[in-house]
Each structure stands twice: as structure tokens, then as C-alpha cells.
Computed example of a mutant assay.
Amino acid sequence: MAGPGHERSGTLTIVGDVRLDIRSMLPAGALADTAADTDLFAPMTLTVAGTAANLASFAVQHFAQVNVIAGVGDDFATAGIRDHLQRLGVGQHLFGKPGHANATTVILRMGDGARVMVSSDPSPNHLLSVEDIDTVAAVLAASDLVFTEGHFLRGAASRPAVHHLVDVCAGLGVPVCFDLVPHDLAGFVPLAELAPLLARCSVAIASAQTAAALLGRPGAERQDDGFAWWAAEQLTRVVGADTTWLIRWGPTNIEQVVSSRPGAAPRAYATGYELAAEKTAYGDRVAAAELWCWLNKVDLDAAMLGHAGGARGQDG
């Protein structure tokens, strides 16, 4: 992605998942025979990742200050996680969870086809508590925008914590962006339960796949923007608030975005994903630019997205 083309400004605080990613590219069909043990040899990478770490790595291009609030384990990887965030130059507010390993995801891609992803569960982030959130109230108060995400809704401790986070930010007058991940979010949190939470958020991000499941139409998403427009309208109706919806759609749920907010003309834009040389964590690349633009009330442009198409207005 090209440089942002603007002066860095504002403070973004990210309350999200930090984990290790182990990635490997395998030949197409390498795991087709699952009935027998298979030994494979392929290049592998080990990186600090997760929503918080990935988003922070791109947000530092746009925001003058970026903070990360997350739960971490107490194993050998913790020092590496802290070093990684320090190199990024972000403020660290990490809550160690004794007796718990850091979260890990193994990602295997077969050629140009589908991926197999296995994530450790539970994660230290599932132990983030209401008390932890209260500890960082001053950090939240000094923020221009707070970002958080749906993985916290999996944990018995972190579910009330993320609700408390949104309440605290609302009381402080700090806007919140909520990312509706993972894609199977509807399987453990129905839209009726999410709606009051999202009504207190200023921005919500969802893939067309996630939106379809939440709206009771799993598999209804199509590879054109018709469903994305419809989903944004329906989510606005159900949530009933002045929330800006960013609905991602396309073959891999990132190629296109529909942006919709009550009282404003809806817009659609390409993200440049197809042209990107590096596609890993591309959704976080786009989100970092989108959040800066939302905060500064400007439209995304080609310089931010790193492709010629730019964002385009479109009537819904």
C-alpha cells in the first residue's frame, strides 16, 4: 500500500486480539488425503499478529498516536510481542494472564485456494476483564477513537468487559468502532443481543458473509453490491442508531466496501486488494485508512488505498 498522503494526526486506541501467526503455503490439494498421516515440508513464517497488532502496524501511518490494549500470556512469546509493539512505536497496555499461553493461529493455504486456519482457544484476550478496562480509563479518555472487535464476545470474562468498554467510551464521549469478527459471530451472538452494543458505537465493520448470517440469511451474500446495500439498510434499521456501516464484499470479503450512514448519501469504493503485492492483513490496512478518514470527515482516495480506482460516491 502506498503512503497515506496526509499528515498523521489523532489518537487511536485499539482494544483487540494479539497472537502469534504461523503461516505456510502448501501445494494445491496437499491435504486432500486426510485419512492418513502426511509429512509435508514447506517454508513457514512466524509473526506477531492478531487484530490489534495488525491494525496497529498500519494505523501508525495515519495516526499520531496509537495505543494497544490486550491480554497476553506468560510464556516465551510474551517478550517478543512486547518488542514487536515497541518497534511499531505504539503505546502498550498489556494485561498478563498468568498460567496461560499466548494465543496462536496456524494458517495453511493450499495453492491459490482455500485456507485451513486453526486458532488456540481459549485466548488470554478472553480473560480481559471489566477491572482491566477500568485500569486504562485514562488512556481511553485521551483517545480520539477507540477500536474493538467481536472476538471478545467469545469469552465469559471478556464479553462483559467489551460491553463495559463501550459504556465507558460513551460516558467519555469517545467514539467507538466495532469490527464484527469472526465470520461465524452470528453462531454465538445473535443480532438481537448485538444491537444494543452496536447502537452505542459510531462505526461498525462487517463482511457481507457475516451480515448475511446475522440477518438470518446465511449464504445470501452475492458477489455484487446489491446485497451489501440491502444489508447496510437492514442493519441500520435493526440497530436504530446513527452508526456508520462499512460492509465489505467480494470473492474474499475485502475487494469492495459499501459505506452507509443514516442521513448521508451511501458510497461504494474498491479497496485495491486485487492489485496489492502483499495481501496478508489487507483488511487491517483498509480499516486503518477508513478510521482516519471517518475521524477527519474526509473521503478515502487513491493515495490512501494505493490503487488508481479510489473511492467513488454512489447512490444506494
Rank of each mutant, 00 (worst) to 15 (best):
residue 117 M to K: 07
residue 275 L to R: 15
residue 135 T to V: 14
residue 222 R to G: 12
residue 98 P to C: 08
residue 90 V to C: 07
residue 205 I to H: 12
residue 281 A to F: 08
residue 190 P to E: 03
residue 189 V to C: 05
residue 142 A to C: 12
residue 262 P to K: 04
residue 156 A to Q: 11
residue 281 A to H: 08
residue 223 Q to I: 13
residue 229 W to R: 15
residue 246 L to D: 04
residue 176 V to A: 09
residue 210 T to A: 04
residue 190 P to M: 02
residue 303 A to R: 15
residue 51 T to E: 07
residue 150 G to V: 01
residue 209 Q to K: 13
residue 163 H to P: 06
residue 236 T to W: 09
residue 29 G to V: 09
residue 312 R to Y: 07
residue 288 A to I: 10
residue 129 S to K: 03
residue 237 R to Y: 07
residue 35 A to C: 08
residue 87 R to P: 09
residue 40 L to A: 02
residue 188 F to D: 04
residue 126 H to E: 14
residue 185 L to T: 03
residue 250 G to Q: 01
residue 292 W to E: 10
residue 190 P to C: 07
residue 26 L to W: 01
residue 26 L to Y: 03
residue 53 A to W: 00
residue 94 L to V: 04
residue 5 G to R: 02
residue 55 L to Q: 03
residue 202 S to E: 13
residue 29 G to N: 02
residue 47 T to Y: 01
residue 77 A to P: 05
residue 20 L to V: 15
residue 5 G to E: 04
residue 50 G to F: 01
residue 129 S to E: 11
residue 162 V to R: 00
residue 306 G to R: 00
residue 205 I to Y: 05
residue 114 A to I: 08
residue 137 A to F: 06
residue 123 S to W: 05
residue 19 R to W: 00
residue 196 P to M: 04
residue 253 N to F: 08
residue 10 G to R: 00
residue 306 G to T: 10
residue 287 A to K: 13
residue 11 T to Y: 03
residue 121 D to Y: 10
residue 26 L to S: 06
residue 237 R to E: 14
residue 141 A to L: 10
residue 73 G to N: 05
residue 10 G to V: 01
residue 284 D to T: 09
residue 227 F to D: 11
residue 238 V to N: 05
residue 70 A to S: 15
residue 49 A to C: 02
residue 140 L to C: 09
residue 98 P to E: 11
residue 134 D to R: 11
residue 152 F to A: 03
residue 166 V to L: 05
residue 266 P to Y: 05
residue 113 G to R: 07
residue 160 P to L: 07
residue 153 L to W: 02
residue 5 G to P: 02
residue 284 D to W: 05
residue 52 A to L: 01
residue 185 L to C: 02
residue 306 G to A: 10
residue 170 A to K: 05
residue 200 R to E: 14
residue 4 P to V: 06
residue 120 S to L: 09
residue 172 L to N: 10
residue 43 P to A: 08
residue 7 E to K: 02
residue 230 W to R: 14
residue 14 I to L: 01
residue 233 E to T: 13
residue 33 D to Q: 07
residue 60 V to T: 15
residue 276 A to N: 13
residue 276 A to Q: 12
residue 195 A to C: 03
residue 68 V to H: 01
residue 135 T to W: 08
residue 123 S to H: 08
residue 165 L to F: 08
residue 165 L to T: 03
residue 256 Q to P: 06
residue 285 R to S: 14
residue 166 V to D: 11
residue 273 Y to F: 15
residue 119 S to D: 09
residue 100 H to T: 10
residue 113 G to P: 08
residue 178 F to S: 07
residue 300 L to I: 13
residue 133 I to S: 06
residue 229 W to A: 13
residue 286 V to C: 13
residue 306 G to N: 09
residue 286 V to Q: 12
